[in-house]
Amino acid sequence: MLHTVNKSPFERNSLESCLRLAKKGSAILLLEDGVYAAINGTSVSDKVSGATKDNSVYVLGPDMKARGLGESQLIDGIKIVDYAGFVDLAADNDGVTPWL
């Protein structure tokens, strides 16, 4: 299962609910405003960093770039994907759970 989070963790509880209800071993993709969860030094960094131990966590590169965020700010263990990578993730997993 691929879980997608497209809301900022500072505005909504989408990320929190995703991390609570995603089964260990599933893939999580942060996109749109969800990418703010992928950077170091925030109030959710530790939680997201913890999630990288149990899940594969990805972030959508174009959405990071658009928001002025660079690879150097990324939490260790998170992988950057482009749109083609997003398609691969959706195709390789059995279904997508969107956290809106």
Binding site: M1, A22, G95, P98, L100
Partner: peptide
């Protein structure tokens, strides 16, 4: 609930 989500063929969010 995590198991229920994981074993679904499709999830419609809202």
């Amino acid at each position: 609930l995590a198991d229920v989500l994981d074993t679904s063929d499709a999830v419609i969010g809202g």
